[in-house]
């Protein structure tokens, strides 16, 4: 055990953060009774988990995928189809979907990892669209309705629950597992390798890092957890269709949340989800009545402003303020040192 722990860089405050996260995920669902807020909480947990999963490839490794909806969709469809047609429990279907997503990720990795930056983004965007179009086209050959409903028949084995707080616990657990995984990665040599690749591919390779292998590791882990999120989304909404789980909007939302909070950090995607989802909800509440779409116009503009003002997200903003403060006091102490 201690040998295993030696692979990670632990800090004293780590335990504290986990206590906070754990308390939030399991205590909040009990304290919040209002259905509306519980709904927001479920979605925040779920999206925070998926954004954290995206962040492993998109933030830590710096390969910003805009095609993660493919994994959400595969997760949702695999578990739902397996349950509806074969009777397999979503708990198993969830794993099956995750594995299928990993397979898809491995297949698409070869072409897309030949690109960097916006080209990688565009290619993955096209990948997400392609999966949706292929799924829709496949309905010509297999007998499948456009949308799939999951029977509302509560039961743990069927992963359908009566009360929303159970969903909050479920998605909270998902968030915690993804966070622990991402945290462990980032504090091990793998995280260090991913950051190295993000900062300078040339120097990373020159340091003996087999780049493709590590990008692939990050991509597979990311795809797996995103796909799990897809299953949970399906089990919560109990209805899926190609345009809802395979949508560019999801592909954009996940990186967006990571970016808002602080891309490449562990807390960033969580903070981003905590901001973005309620923000959109509040905008919808306030402007939804006056004109359809107005709330998203404002959301889009808010996004532009936030990204320009805080390019490294909220955490980045806080850090730069702190650094300015520290460097000022640093400069003072350096002047006093005789050189």
């Amino acid at each position: 055990m201690s040998r295993f722990l030696g692979y990670f860089d632990w800090k004293r405050t780590d335990g504290l953060w986990f206590a906070v996260l754990l308390a939030a995920a399991f205590a909040l669902p009990h304290f919040i009774e209002n259905d509306y807020y519980i709904n927001v909480l479920v979605l925040v947990f779920l999206y925070a988990g998926m954004a954290s999963a995206w962040n492993i490839i998109g933030g830590m490794a710096g390969q910003f995928s805009l095609g993660h909806t493919a994994f959400v969709g595969i997760g949702a469809y695999t578990s739902t189809l397996l349950f509806n047609y074969v009777g397999v429990s979503p708990w198993l279907g969830m794993i099956a979907g995750g594995l299928l997503s990993m397979l898809m990720a491995a297949l698409i990795a070869y072409p897309v990892f030949r690109m960097r930056g916006v080209f990688f983004a565009m290619a993955t965007l096209a990948f997400g669209e392609t999966v949706r179009i292929l799924l829709m086209a496949s309905r010509k050959y297999v007998d499948m309705p456009y949308g799939l409903s999951i029977n509302y028949d509560p039961g743990f084995i069927r992963m359908v629950f009566e009360d929303r707080s159970s969903y909050a616990m479920l998605t909270g657990a998902f968030l915690i597992i993804v966070t622990i995984f991402a945290f462990g990665l980032s504090r091990s040599y793998i995280g260090s390798y991913l950051r190295a690749i993000r900062d300078s591919e040339e120097a990373a390779v020159a340091s003996g890092i087999p780049m493709r292998k590590y990008k692939m590791i990050a991509f597979l882990i990311s795809a797996f957890f995103t796909s799990i999120g897809g299953t949970l989304l399906a089990q919560y909404i109990l209805y899926i269709e190609p345009s809802s789980v395979f949508s560019t909007a999801i592909s954009i939302d996940l990186p967006l949340m990571a970016l808002l909070g602080g891309i490449g950090t562990i807390a960033g995607p969580v903070i981003g989800a905590v901001i973005a989802l309620p923000l959109r909800d509040i905008l919808l509440e306030t402007f939804g009545q006056s004109a359809p779409g107005l709330h998203l116009v404002i959301y889009g503009i808010a996004l532009i402003v936030i990204v320009i003002v805080l390019p490294h997200g909220l955490l980045g903003g806080v850090k730069s303020i702190r650094e300015r403060f520290v460097s000022r006091s640093h400069a003072r102490s350096e002047r006093e040192e005789p050189k």
Binding site: Y193, R195, S200, A203, A204, A206, S207, I209
Partner: peptide, 17 residues
């Protein structure tokens, strides 16, 4: 070619891993 997001120690550690 420096790893811009890292400290000196973190950067050098990349090689050590």
């Amino acid at each position: 070619q420096v790893f811009t997001s890292m400290t000196v120690l973190e950067s050098i550690s990349v090689g050590a891993f």
